[in-house]
Design a protein around this nucleic acid. Structure first.
Lengths: 210, 210
DNA sequence: AGTTTGAGTGAACGTGTGTTCACTCAGAGT
DNA sequence: ACTCTGAGTGAACACACGTTCACTCAAACT
């Protein structure tokens, strides 16, 4: 395979990139319902349709494959955050505006979110560390975003960070639920909406108490 | 090994139970930083000091070993909940009373909590399902416990369940953090304390709005 | 004392594993 | 046109895997 086609015109770089993508996709597919630590280089190679040794032309271990998947998964996630932030400039309709966007993203990039959820807890040490780091960065970004919202200046920096952390944790949990039972999406969203409101009521009353 | 000792007096049942425990402990040990889906029956047997085939006298697969570990891990967790509930009859000091208990339990039963955290996301399908089910039961128990707290009767049943769910999710997240960085225990506890207060301020204001 | 039971043994099976090596042969650079 | 580069090949390695089977031999039961 991989070039056996009589198809014309494929540059060397294009060909390599195509195989690399195929490896990433195969890994996402194979780890679904399992984990990076449980799949083998040979399974991936077989799925892609290349010989095991060819794998090494692209990654030098399953772990480094995992790190590449972390990168592209968080590219997805940052796309989500950008979109959420664009369409909800108001603190008031923040929740109603954001939840459907989250649901859409999880549905569209299911494999990526499932990968993060799984490997965050059970991946190779380096991969877990990379994921933890990325989540930390995103939490900080969220904190500075919230700081720009009018009315949020009553929060101390410390409490702002804790609020952002609380929200991120909760979004991670919600994403996990959407992944594990996609059929219950509307119920999960309705429940999450109420819970986020409970949380926000706390945040709003908190700042007035400061 | 396993009976090679010149030690006297060990009944057949005791011997079997001792080996069974050794298998469970070995599995907890081997899955640490990895996952049930990534360990082999032979690794476990070697760790215990028995021949691979002897494993089948106790469990008929690694998956059923996993289900046994789910059972005993949640026995630990229920012990925690009982203790938390005993020493915090007041809604007010609920948080300050519970957090140190949680931290103690996580420290004392680290392997169990780490097991739940990992396999919840990445274990074999049956194991994930069992964990999800146990968490659901605990959430329901918490909801009925909260319902007995004076002043909580302003919550509708539905919102009571959502609050319980919110708390359980957050406790799971906190336990995960304590596991992944035990050295930061006091910082994590202080932060979690503030976040739980934010959440509780929301809950308290919520019920008065109903 | 004699028999039954069952936890643990050890050899064997077919298959999958990561990694090495020398190789092909088409696209890229001269 | 001629060489170089490097993605993909295929054989081979030493080892680990789950499962089967007939076995031992001490505790438990009669």
């Amino acid at each position: 395979m991989a070039g056996a086609q009589g198809e014309v015109a494929e540059t060397r770089g294009e060909r390599k990139e195509r195989t690399r993508r195929a490896i990433l996709d195969a890994a996402l597919d194979l780890t679904d319902g399992s984990s990076l630590v449980a799949i083998s280089l040979r399974q991936v190679a077989k799925e892609v349709g290349i010989v095991p040794t060819a794998f090494y032309r692209h990654f030098d271990s399953v772990e480094s494959l995992g790190l590449a998947l972390v990168d592209e998964s968080f590219d997805s996630l940052r796309g989500l955050l950008r979109e959420v932030w664009l369409r909800s400039p108001q603190f008031g309709d923040y929740i109603d505006g954001s939840l459907p966007v989250l649901a859409d993203h999880v549905r569209a990039h299911r494999a990526h979110y499932a990968f993060i959820a799984r490997e965050r807890a059970a991946g190779p040490a380096r991969v877990r560390e990379a994921i933890r780091h990325e989540i930390e960065l995103i939490t900080r970004e969220l904190a500075t975003d919230i700081a720009r919202v009018p009315g949020s200046n009553a929060f101390s920096t410390e409490h702002l960070n804790l609020l952002a952390d609380l929200i991120v944790s909760f979004v991670v949990t919600t994403a996990e639920r959407l992944i594990e039972d996609p059929g219950a999406e509307s119920r999960i969203l309705a429940e999450t909406r109420t819970q986020l409101r409970m949380l926000m009521v706390g945040a709003l009353n908190w700042q007035t108490r400061r």
